[in-house]
Design a protein around this nucleic acid. Structure first.
Length: 291
DNA sequence: ACCGCACCCTGAGCGC
DNA sequence: TGCGCTCAGGGTGCGG
């Protein structure tokens, strides 16, 4: 679920709980493709390190360490980053070991999906990275050379300029929806906010990218920024898994125009919202408001 | 260079 | 209650 707004909300709330603290001990689960760096190596590299900064590009989080190394984090589809102060009933109900032990439902205990635990040894809250589907990623960036994953990314979606988007659409035959999801063009937009931005811009997701006019690219640029900024303000979308670092749900899902609203009336014109599949992703649009 | 597709994994929700 | 099926917001890598 996490797209740019959820990652940014996570970054803003997590930074004060992470920056300036020294990692005393790291616990991990078994090796899996979740770990870009093998867990044993990761533990050795992180223990004793102090976090200097937490930054974001697209959907990637990067923690700068005091030895110049960078820890890369990606939440994938079901990744959750939170601390032992978490109070989400949804999370606690899922991970409580036994309903017969009330204490287990009041505080989080790492379960089999909690792949990374930071203990700080300062008496403060621990940090957890939990990810059921393991599409998330954690690993150290090689120092001195650019990481291909990061190097591939286009400009962060919050900074996209109309002319750049217009240029990127030329000679591209893919549906505009697919282009918005291409992280090499602009980084951070996922399925929910692509559909929402296209609605706000009045552009149908199926349109071949190269057929968009300059004026439409300008509207789309504004729509992308508007929807992402509004989603950050409302704490992101908590449609299934996302929770903030303190366990708070986001509220953008209450404001969405089209995403997962197929069969329901358009909030603007009452036409029935439709759903089509583009690039193996479900896409939602209003047939009247979007041309 | 570009595009479509298979795949990585687990859980929720649905119809029967 | 339980089974089997479909679907899910992410990214990578392959072949055509």
């Amino acid at each position: 679920m996490p797209e740019l707004p959820e990652v940014e909300v996570t970054r803003r709330r997590m930074a004060p709980l992470l920056v300036g603290r020294t990692i005393a001990r790291v616990r991990t689960t078994r090796p899996s493709y979740f770990f870009l760096t093998p867990p044993a190596k990761l533990r050795r590299a992180l223990e004793g390190r102090t976090v200097l900064a937490l930054t974001r590009h697209g959907k990637y989080l990067m923690a700068t360490l005091d030895n110049g190394q960078t820890l890369l984090l990606h939440l994938g589809m079901t990744g959750q980053l939170f601390t032992s102060d978490v109070t989400s009933p949804r999370l606690l109900a899922k991970t409580a070991r036994s309903a017969l032990v009330p204490a287990a439902q009041r505080s989080f205990r790492p379960d089999l999906h909690t792949h990374l635990v930071f203990e700080f040894g300062d008496g403060g809250p621990e940090l957890y990275f939990r990810d059921v589907r393991k599409f998330g990623k954690v690993g150290l960036l090689a120092t001195g050379k650019a990481d291909p994953r990061i190097a591939r990314l286009g400009v962060d979606a919050l900074a996209i300029e109309p002319e750049a988007l217009f240029a990127a659409t030329r000679k591209r035959t893919v549906p505009i929806k697919s282009l918005l999801l291409d992280q090499a063009v602009l980084a951070g937009v996922g399925n929910i906010y692509a559909d929402e931005a296209l609605f706000l811009a009045g552009v149908r997701p199926t349109r071949p990218a190269q057929r968009l006019t300059r004026a439409e690219c300008l509207r789309l640029t504004r729509a992308v920024k508007q929807v992402l900024e509004r989603a950050i303000e409302t704490g992101g979308s908590s449609i299934s898994d996302f929770i903030g670092p303190d366990g708070q749900d986001g509220h953008y899902q209450d404001e969405r125009w089209v995403y997962s609203r197929h069969g329901q009336p358009c909030k603007r014109c009452k036409a029935v919202i439709r759903r089509v599949v583009l690039g193996q992703r479900s896409s939602h649009f209003c047939p009247k408001c979007q041309r």
